[in-house]
Design a protein around this nucleic acid. Structure first.
Lengths: 352, 352
DNA sequence: TTGAAAGCGCTAACAT
DNA sequence: ATGTTAGCGCTTTCAA
């Protein structure tokens, strides 16, 4: 039943007769160091408890220039991919006594820029950023200004910025190889936001897999422009109505795959009989879909945890040296959504 | 290419020759009010921009006792239900220039208590809390101490605490009525954490629906103890092996329903032929499951948004008066997971 | 073993 | 139309 006015060092000081300094020392565990008598220390500690004293973090932060807070910037926290990552970042941070300010940028670069600025003003000790898009100078500025930062989910190859991402190239390469091994040749990609590193890397993996299997690459079969569900739906609709409908779709995100499924159902087609599908990013419910969905699983926990560790490393070293990049391996999960099909009689291997 | 040392009012003051006060005034849009000459104002604004000045929020917060920050306490941000809510809370807060500190309590009351304490120390202006469990005195203390707070997802009927939750009673009542209308009489509940308001209310809805349809209530058919996926799996396993296997399952959360589906598949049974199922809380992928899942949809956005509005109302009024509670209606979504079955020949209506 | 004083960066009250 | 002073609550010299 404490009064609503907060207890401060001053309160305690006038109550107990000791100086604020002494009280501060005791309450920060420095009693030993300053050889404060056990008796004094005990009194102070007890009294602090009784009066429900909690230090004002603002004041401490102002004085120490330490806020014990990290900024977390995410394009969409309701996307389970980012939610999982947020969870592991928060947990890892909490382990070290740090809190998280969460900024959702709604996939909007302007909001992202504002958020980063806001977080700087709020004296964050570090930033974990899953950037929306194609631009990164505002992030580089931050890093160069000495504020610890780590990019997740994407990276900017020509910028000096630490990052943690899945090995998108490898993941895509394996997924496409798997489809090819099952006889697919007309494999469509429904991509996400163009000119972002995950998108680029996945396309590279796609192309290389085709190349290594002597399958010609047809540009028109890569479609789409966003990682959202709607994009998956719209693009799948169009793909399915094409005369030379693809035999397989590679969806660049879990949301895209959901949208594609909706389109497939609407067209009265079914997976995998009429069309096969593989999604990037596994989800817990993929096992229970009408047709269990094959996917490229990303290690959400690892991404968040390692990113946070990198932040702490920077905080400790206080040097924004040469940025390190970490690639987290993906894992191909084979489920029923991929059908083994007859190779076309025009397949060059058979012609040869 | 600014230097890494931060620009402060002092910096600007010595650079421009104006006092910190004047600069502060201009930069806070109070130039008019203090009749500061346009020329001066322009110089200051320009210079602030050039030197990339951002006010130190800690200092301002310390001075004004305003942090423009809300605490958001969530049991599991990777649960899409909470992620959606977090998103709408963040967005609503941002609209009013507020930021969010996110605390994930991992469904652990101790972490929750610590988080609330932490957030108090961090001078949050308000708390949005989705409590883990059955205890609430730490939350009531906060409210009584004058800190704005709103509970979401649950409520504590005998505590004076503002809350926003779905109308769990009504949602359950409708779901069970729907099952009954389809001929089901042995309807099992896989419940979440007991003695929490959503759980209690859903059970009340369940019982009343049975009662109004003259169906005897069998206690042993309500099982389970957590809102997680594992609980759904384990309890479904047991239910399915019973001699008088229920004809329908009412899963108290989206995660529970996922776990139940897994068990059903493992037992080589299928939905809805062998067993019908309805889940509380709709998810985007429910449409695409092996059997599209009937569900009681909750309005995630509304919950988050209204909760945040209530916080702001409290912040403005500065009185922790009598707490208001808001019930958000749910919506029953009928999909293929419910089968119309023959009524037993022993049904009392037919006997009568 | 303890305290006094200064200062982190900001804004509001009180001058002029 | 602008400046001086004080103080938010904390920690860290420096002093005793």
């Amino acid at each position: 039943m404490d009064h609503s006015s907060k207890t401060t060092l001053k309160t305690l000081s006038s109550k107990l007769g000791f100086s604020e300094t002494t009280i501060s020392r005791v309450l920060n565990g420095k009693a030993e160091k300053y050889r404060i008598s056990k008796k004094t220390a005990d009194i102070i500690i007890q009294s602090a408890k009784d009066l429900n004293f909690t230090p004002n973090i603002l004041a401490r932060g102002l004085r120490l220039k330490k806020t014990h807070t990290l900024g977390l910037v995410i394009p969409d926290i309701s996307n389970p991919f980012f939610a999982s990552i947020a969870r592991s970042v928060e947990r890892e941070a909490r382990k070290f006594g740090y809190s998280i300010i969460l900024c959702d940028t709604e996939e909007n670069t302007n909001i992202e820029i504002k958020s980063v600025q806001l977080l700087r003003g709020r004296n964050m000790e570090g930033l974990v950023v899953a950037p929306v898009g194609q631009t990164a100078s505002h992030l580089e500025d931050v890093y160069n200004a000495g504020l610890p930062i780590v990019i997740i989910d994407r990276c900017f190859p020509n910028k000096n910025l630490p990052y943690v991402t899945s090995d998108n190239y490898q993941g895509a390469y394996e997924a496409i190889s798997y489809l090819i091994d099952n006889g697919h040749r007309r494999i469509a990609c429904i991509q996400g936001l163009e000119n972002t590193s995950p998108n680029n890397d996945r396309i590279r993996g796609y192309k290389d897999a085709l190349l290594n299997n002597h399958i010609p690459y047809v540009k028109s079969i890569i479609v789409g422009d966003s990682f959202g569900e709607l994009n998956g739906y719209t693009e799948a609709k169009i793909l399915l109505k094409k005369k030379d409908r693809p035999t397989a779709i590679f969806a660049f995100s879990n949301l895209i795959s959901l949208g594609a499924l909706k389109a497939i159902e609407e067209e009265n087609l079914s997976v995998p009989e009429d069309i096969s599908i593989v999604a990037f990013d596994d989800q817990p419910y993929f096992d229970h879909l009408a047709t269990p969905m094959s996917s490229v699983a990303q290690q959400h926990n690892e991404i968040g945890q390692i990113a946070t560790k990198i932040i702490f490393k920077q905080i400790k070293s206080k040097t924004s040296s040469v940025a390190e990049g970490v690639l987290i391996p993906t894992k191909l999960i084979k489920r029923a959504s991929v059908k083994r099909i007859q190779q076309s009689i025009y397949h060059e291997k058979e012609l040869a």
